[in-house]
Design a protein around this nucleic acid. Structure first.
Lengths: 254, 254
DNA sequence: CAGTGGTCTAGACCACCGA
DNA sequence: CGGTGGTCTAGACCACTGA
């Protein structure tokens, strides 16, 4: 009778799905279940109703319900065991690393972001840049260097290289909206990003820009991002003040 | 007639699927496609055969083929566009961060791992440990502190706390097999892990243990891992030599 | 317009688990 | 044994893309 483990909460009546709207049914269902977990309505360790029963109550087929649940399993909030059922994972929920820009991260935590633009110029691609962007060595690229600040405190120094077609981006847009927002407004959608996270000491110049002591420890991240056609659209080399920024990752074993 | 983009390689006859074995069909298919991408048989930018046609040629239903392709999309090797098709992402492939132990990482890169065991003892859970492991403050936990080496060069200092039930783990097993392997042999399967990656300066003791200069930059990672019932089974606080270790992450926008 | 992926259905059989 | 999730089928309709 231990209430913690056996607590089957079949979320009463809170389902009125929009069957003809543009939002997929599985997504509507997964969002509501996720909301119930995050709000504590489905506490850690509680069991979810089984897939068939849930499907019948909602008037959905089993594959649709299953996909909804799988979405949340992939986020690390639910755990499934064959023959047992689906349970809410213990442990407080943390935000996941997502394919977003630093700008988005900062606004999400209710800090006011701003930008000091250090460089915005055309540069010839060296070997490394050419390889990362998948362009010919020696071809022109757009080079950007910025300091990003949160509540007027410097957080990161960011260098970016973009393919030739983006030469012409306005400095004002970059300062006002952030790089990823500018790219989105030009019809570019990021799909895949490969990141490399490490650490090193700061250079003297970086220490000044970030307002930290000399030879301080820095968190570094290199990233190459690809759009929905698979072409590289951005290559970045960034370093962060580790007292103000870090990465969260949720891993799910398949 | 640009061979790069239009290169439809329908991978000739290399499909003889085992329909009655224990390996799922979608997995067999996804593995072969992935292999074809990694081997260069399907070069960057080439288009995959469409889902229905592929299903017919393989004698599989569309959902099964679709799931096989989706697996690879989630790994960041393929990109799908409605009305267009499925293409191989540009850019060289890198290994993904996975839910594995450091021990596994090192053996995969063909270095010989070893361990210096610094501590293996019972400790009372303080507030932080109790919260991370989901146990009562003051309850006994197993505390482990190790230096991990690759080819006899120190790479990381690792601290771990485990719930009461694991008290009794043998020092010899820990040195010979690594923590995750010991847990697996006790029937524990990791399912979800939440990691936090940052950076800081090394303490004097860490500098000695890792054979680096004082106040060097360190890469740090905290992790809480959960088993398939959703219970926390391990909480770790680790620091790495950034010249020998870093994290790779592949992000896929859904 | 024809072709593509995105979603959804209503079943089915199986493997694994606890009682 | 009954209940659970894991896999698979053979269709269907839709939204989006390019020519």
């Amino acid at each position: 009778m231990s209430a913690k483990e056996e607590n089957t909460l079949p979320m009463g009546m809170f389902m009125d799905l929009e069957r003809s709207g543009p939002i997929p049914l599985y997504f509507q269902v997964s969002q509501r279940i996720e909301k119930a977990i995050l709000s504590g309505e489905l506490p850690a360790g509680s069991r979810l109703e089984n897939e068939v029963a849930l499907g019948q109550r909602l008037g959905l087929s089993r594959p649709t319900v299953r996909r909804a649940i799988q979405e949340i399993v992939d986020k690390g909030l639910l755990v499934r065991r064959r023959g047992i059922g689906t349970q809410v994972v213990h442990g407080q929920v943390t935000r996941k690393v997502e394919l977003t820009s630093l700008y988005d991260d900062l606004t999400n935590t209710h800090k006011v972001p701003s930008t000091h633009l250090l460089a915005l110029e055309t540069r010839v691609a060296d070997a490394k840049t050419a390889e990362r962007l998948g362009v010919a060595e020696g071809s022109p690229t757009l080079y950007i260097r910025r300091v990003r600040l949160a509540d007027d405190v410097p957080v990161a120094v960011m260098e970016n290289w973009l393919p030739e077609e983006f030469i012409g981006i306005e400095p004002n847009d970059l300062v006002a909206h952030g790089l990823y927002q500018v790219l989105r407004s030009r019809g570019v959608t990021m799909r895949v990003a490969r990141q490399h996270i490490g650490a090193r000491k700061s250079t003297n110049e970086e220490s000044v820009l970030l307002e930290i002591e000399k030879n301080a420890a820095l968190l570094t991240m290199d990233r190459t991002a690809f759009d929905n056609s698979g072409r590289a659209v951005e290559f970045g080399q960034h370093c962060y003040r580790p007292d103000l920024y870090s990465f969260e990752v949720t891993l799910v074993e398949k």
